[in-house]
Nucleic acid binder design. Structure first.
Lengths: 229, 229
DNA sequence: ACATGACTGGAACAGTGTTCCAATCTCCTG
DNA sequence: CAGGAGATTGGAACACTGTTCCAGTCATGT
């Protein structure tokens, strides 16, 4: 277990190899997650990337779960903190949600981690911001919690779905092939039994992820606006 | 790899131990998942529960991923197939969503699996039903796909969150303790910096899961109704 | 009867997160 | 400035996974 306390690793005199630190470990983990995918992050790979052993890593980080949480927090917190701009309250909420969207598009493993462990610290900040937005939109106090929860769950659902898609893309290196396979499974049933699925299959293949995300978001925002008064 | 084809295991003469089959393997897996939690499902535990070895299991099931998918499909498909009742179209959609809700409450591991692999076969049926509902509600064709996707993602988000909560409950055997810990982390920031989080902390502790689920659902339904015309 | 192929059980393998510990390195103190 | 105490390191070892392999067994059709 890592010991919290006075660590003195702020001076690497000449061209000594820089001493390990929690930040360096987290940064290396993020680099592996981004560059080689979620499955590539093992303590052995991490140790090699840092030219050390797994024991040394465990001195700075309790276990893999907290390492993943720290990595998620690192990329999420800044994005969320800087988001929330917008003249209208609804725009501010949209901006926060889009901040999360962009982070997940850039780092799909964040989606996996969010889907497994939704209540990361950064999510508290997110809940604060969107609650403020809903309040400014005129949502009554009694419904604020439900609105915030609903939006968070919508975000989590997108996170899960985007992360799963990215995992599949990563394996086959070919997004269109993955989509074709998905559409094929999608349209496996008889058109007579699944008319809407067949009707909308084209859209599944060609839809723009961000546009769909925003459309779903606007559904929730419109529903929230509807609670005014 | 398991061989598909003519399998002849439909007769166990007297009181012979019944022969293995894909269905029996899946049923045993579900029993372990329900009774002892997600982490308890290992091929060794499964083999012991079926009084056999792991090799025999692999004859009937390709790997753990497909086993989990089959288990999920088993509990999800029936619930979804039987759902969708309701005089008004919106009620039918609500009924489908509540079907998924109930399955996840009864088998939280379904939430984990759905969050990891959203496009199970049963989800196609679900998409079909909710698309039909949205259509009957008067949502224009051009928005049908977005509405369906949004609702699916909301469901996935609930699935992820409920599964994570259930995992924590399982570890500490004490729901209120888990909630207290969560609220504590939740209210860690300064009240001045996180006014809404502190304002709504009580609701986080005491809210009814089903009520919150339905409230969020109604947000989306209201948003969809708003697209009429 | 017996050969063929479906099926079984469990040993062996590769890879994981985690623990343990002897060695080192740093810094404070006598 | 010597040297000890504690912080930090690296890598071997451990326990546990999913998965593969394979020598057997069983059932059945000829």
């Amino acid at each position: 277990m890592s010991r919290m306390g006075m660590s003195s690793n702020d001076h690497q005199p000449k061209q000594q190899k820089p001493s390990l630190s929690r930040e360096r470990v987290v940064a290396a983990a993020i680099a592996i997650l981004d560059g080689e995918g979620e499955n590539a992050l093992t303590f052995r790979a991490l140790a090699k990337s840092l030219s050390t052993g797994s024991g040394a890593i465990y001195w700075h980080v309790a276990d893999k779960r907290t390492l993943l949480a720290a990595a998620t927090e690192h990329v999420l917190s800044e994005a969320i903190a800087q988001s929330g701009r917008g003249t209208h309250p609804a725009d501010a909420v949209r901006d926060v949600a889009l901040g999360v969207f962009d982070v997940i598009e850039a780092h799909p493993w964040v989606g996996t981690e969010l889907a497994r462990e939704p209540w990361q610290p950064a999510m508290t900040t997110l809940f604060e911001k969107i609650s403020a937005g809903f309040d400014a939109m005129g949502v009554p106090r009694s419904a604020l919690f439900y609105c915030g929860s609903a939006l968070v769950q919508y975000l989590l659902g997108f996170a899960a779905q985007a992360a799963a898609a990215a995992r599949h893309d990563f394996q086959s290196q070919d997004r269109t092939e993955v989509l074709t396979t998905l559409v094929a499974r999608w349209t496996q049933g008889e058109p007579a039994d699944y008319p809407y699925v067949h009707l909308l299959a084209d859209e599944l293949r060609s839809h723009d992820e961000r546009e769909a995300f925003l459309a779903g978001l606007d559904l929730i925002l419109a529903g929230a606006r509807n609670l005014q008064g």
